[in-house]
Design a protein around this nucleic acid. Structure first.
Lengths: 212, 212
DNA sequence: GAATCCATGTAATTGGTTACATGATTCA
DNA sequence: TGAATCATGTAACCAATTACATGGATTC
């Protein structure tokens, strides 16, 4: 049947037998930045890779079994005990080996775009409304990114110029998301423009001339 | 436990009992543009929403069961017979009702960004190399988008200004992907710039002065 | 003569979401 | 008084990928 393979046709399988999925490497990345509990990891990933506890806890257990992370049990009174995970030397090595390998093709799942795909079934004015609402959402995301960037700038001023600090990459990734959001607003406005043009053009035609 | 709900907190469930997933609406959208076989649908979606035959055929069967699409069997000699799907009136209505509803939050899965997240475990120069390779990939995608846009411009010149034509939205979506790719190249270059700056700054410090 | 195209499907597995279970503490 | 926070997990389900099965026609 020969369905197309991902990752640009190269076989870029890791040479060692152990092969984590992306979530595994992501979790390894989070606890390598800073030791955290499963609960904290979920909160931490909320913006960059939303993930459910029901997926995180089993994966942390698997990483522990593979000897890639260690867990320290913390007894607490008044609230549940917790397990703080940190990477082992092996875990740090596995992560380092993975970073820089050929990544799979990125996948974007966006219902809004799927709706735009079928936008022609709706009236142009209704699609304009869709895009207007989208811009409201995008603007909200932008101001969120901006406040997170502003916060970074005061709490980590010096680290932002040091690419051996993970804060450097936090900054870099926030910049990327901001840029993507701004780009999407520009695009949305251009689509609204196109829809207005053709809309009024049609109206003028229908009012001023007789065609058909 | 109260995990956060998607789609901005509104309950935007369709009023009718029938509720398709995104793939269902996507397939409905494809066959509404033009009647197609499952095989053709998979080819068609290759760029905008990569999908496997093993997922498409069962979903088409489900849509047929729900009375949202009709299938016409075409006998062929020398190659397998095929089933051409087209939307029913009900299917067209369901699609129209869906377009414009509040979409779920978009999700981007990109291993490259997950690697960048942990870029600090590598040497800055190695990360620069990662980004250089990324730019090569992005440029290839850009020229693909550009040639598809150029093709559209000649084959569908008039439809591109008519928002009641699905070709209008094909054009609009291609523009979006092009913009996103260009934006990502700009970002990549800026990151490379930051990495070079701090790289040489460190080197100068180590060569010219004695610290530590 | 090997790979790709056409064409439709099923089975097994992995990835991810929803729902459930528990329970003290803190905030509106 | 009701909701949210902290905290860890399991069970059931839905979504998606990988692998399997079949086979003539066409292209390299």
């Amino acid at each position: 049947m020969a369905e197309k393979k991902n990752s640009a046709g190269k076989d870029s399988k890791p040479p060692s037998g152990l092969s984590l999925n992306t979530l595994g490497y992501q979790l390894l990345g989070v606890v390598s930045r800073q030791a955290r509990s499963g609960y904290d990891i979920v909160k931490q990933l909320e913006y960059i890779r939303p993930v459910k506890t029901s997926q995180v806890y089993p994966m942390l257990a698997r990483l522990e079994n593979l000897g890639l992370v260690d867990a320290e049990d913390i007894e607490q009174t008044g609230r549940p005990n917790k397990r703080i995970y940190s990477p082992t030397a092996k875990g740090r090595q596995v992560l380092t080996d993975w970073v820089g390998t050929e990544p799979d093709l990125p996948v974007l799942r966006d219902d809004f775009l799927t709706m735009v795909y079928s936008g022609w079934v709706r009236e142009p004015q209704e699609v304009i409304d869709m895009f207007e609402r989208r811009i409201v959402y995008l603007r909200a995301m932008i101001s969120e990114m901006e406040s997170r960037l502003a916060e970074l700038a005061v709490t980590a001023r010096d680290d932002l110029k040091n690419p051996k600090s993970w804060l450097f990459y936090r900054h870099v990734l926030l910049m990327r998301r901001l840029g993507a959001l701004q780009q999407e607003i520009i695009w949305s406005r251009s689509v609204i423009g196109l829809l207005h043009d053709t809309d009024s053009a049609e109206k003028t035609t229908n009012e001023g001339e007789i065609d058909d």
